[in-house]
Every structure is written in structure tokens, then in C-alpha cells.
Lab assay of single mutants.
Amino acid sequence: VFVDDHLLEKVLELNAKGEKRLIKTWSRRSTIVPEMVGHTIAVYNGKQHVPVYITENMVGHKLGEFAP
């Protein structure tokens, strides 16, 4: 499973602090992992960042699938 390192670091850091804030990313190719559930990730679609709230059903899919 591929997840960009910088994105995973941000998610794990927020989980350690117990925070839930918006994470901006250009990494549409990253796979959604269970650690991301409950976070809102702003995924770049080529024009703007689209906020995507991550749920359990999204695990295993790519971030780009949810930012048309």
C-alpha cells in the first residue's frame, strides 16, 4: 500500500496529539489507511483543495477518487 511519507507523518502526528484539523495535500495517489479515519483531508483536484472527510468505508481507496 502506498502513502506519501509527508502525509502519513502529518496524520500520525495529529493522532498522537489527539487533534483533528484540516490537512492539505497534493498527493491524490496516496491510499487511504485506517490511521486517517476521522480526519478531514483537503485533496487538490488541479484547481482547488476539496475537503474530504475520511470514513471507514474509504480505507483501501485512493484520495484522488474522492476529489473529482
Results as ranks from 00 to 15, higher is better:
Asn15Ala: 03
Lys24Ala: 08
Leu8Tyr: 12
Lys20Tyr: 11
Glu13Tyr: 08
Trp26Phe: 15
Ser27Thr: 03
Val1Trp: 12
Pro51Ser: 07
Ile54Cys: 10
Asp4Ile: 02
Ile41Tyr: 01
Lys47Gly: 07
Thr40Lys: 06
Glu65Asp: 07
Gly60His: 14
Thr31Ile: 08
Met36Glu: 01
Phe66Arg: 03
Pro68Leu: 09
Arg21Gly: 15
Ala67Pro: 04
Val37Glu: 10
Val1Lys: 07
Lys62Trp: 07
Leu12Val: 08
Phe66His: 08
Leu7Ser: 00
Glu19Phe: 06
Ile23Gly: 01
Leu22Lys: 05
Ile32Asp: 00
Glu65Tyr: 10
Ala16His: 08
Val1Ala: 15
Ala16Thr: 09
Trp26Gln: 12
Leu22His: 05
Glu9Gln: 15
His39Met: 02
Met58Trp: 05
Val59Ile: 14
Leu63Met: 06
Gly18Asp: 07
His39Pro: 00
Leu14Pro: 01
Met36Ala: 03
Pro68Met: 12
Ala67Phe: 03
Val3Tyr: 04
Glu9Val: 08
His61Phe: 15
Arg28Pro: 04
Pro51Phe: 04
Gln48Asp: 10
Met58Cys: 09
Thr55Leu: 15
Thr31Trp: 08
Trp26Asp: 14
Gln48Met: 15
Arg21Met: 14
His6Cys: 15
Glu56Arg: 12
His61Lys: 10
Arg21Glu: 15
Glu56Lys: 11
Val3Pro: 03
Lys20Trp: 07
Gly18Trp: 02
Lys62His: 14
His49Arg: 02
Tyr53Asn: 14
Pro34Asn: 12
Ser30Phe: 03
Tyr44His: 11
Glu65Asn: 10
Val50Met: 09
Pro51Glu: 12
Pro51Asp: 06
Ile32Gln: 00
Pro34Phe: 12
Glu19Arg: 05
Val33Phe: 05
Arg21Asn: 12
Phe2Lys: 04
Tyr44Leu: 04
Asn57Glu: 15
Glu56Gly: 14
Thr40Leu: 09
Glu65Ile: 08
Leu14Val: 02
Ala16Phe: 07
Leu7Lys: 00
Ile32Phe: 02
Ile32Val: 11
Ala42Glu: 07
Arg21Asp: 14
Gly38Lys: 10
Leu8Gln: 02
Gly18Ala: 05
Trp26Glu: 14
Val43Trp: 03
Thr40Ala: 08
Phe2Ser: 04
Thr25Leu: 01
His6Asp: 12
Arg28Gln: 05
Leu14Met: 13
Lys62Thr: 14
Val52Gly: 01
His6Thr: 14
Asp5Leu: 15
Lys10Met: 15
His61Gly: 09
Gly60Met: 15
Ile32Pro: 00
Asn15Cys: 02
Ile54Asn: 00
Gly38Arg: 08
Ile54Thr: 04
Asp4Pro: 03
Leu22Pro: 13
Glu19Val: 11
Ile41Ala: 02
Val33Ser: 05
Gly38Glu: 10
His61Gln: 13
His6Trp: 15
Arg28Ala: 06
Thr40Phe: 07
Ser27Ala: 09
Asn45Met: 05
Ile54Trp: 00
Val37Phe: 14
Gly64Cys: 10
Pro51Cys: 06
Thr25Pro: 01
Leu63Val: 04
Met58Glu: 12
Asp4Tyr: 03
Gly64Tyr: 13
Pro34Trp: 11
Lys24Trp: 15
Ala42Arg: 02
Glu9Leu: 12
Pro34Asp: 10
Val1Gln: 14
Arg29Thr: 12
Val50Glu: 09
Leu63His: 01
Val3Ala: 03
Arg29Met: 11
Lys24Leu: 09
Thr55Asp: 14
Thr25Gln: 00
Glu56His: 12
Gly46Arg: 10
Pro51Gly: 06
Val37Ile: 15
Gly46Cys: 10
Thr31Gln: 12
Val11Ile: 14
Pro51Ala: 11
Gly60Ala: 12
Lys17Asn: 09
Thr31Asp: 09
Leu63Asn: 03
Ala16Lys: 14
Pro68Tyr: 07
Val37Arg: 12
His61Ile: 10
Pro51Gln: 07
Thr55Met: 15
Leu63Ala: 01
Gly60Thr: 12
Val59Leu: 12
Lys24Asp: 04
Ser27Met: 06
Val33Tyr: 04
Glu9Asp: 11
Gly60Arg: 09
Ser27Glu: 06
Lys62Gly: 08
Lys24Glu: 08
Lys47His: 13
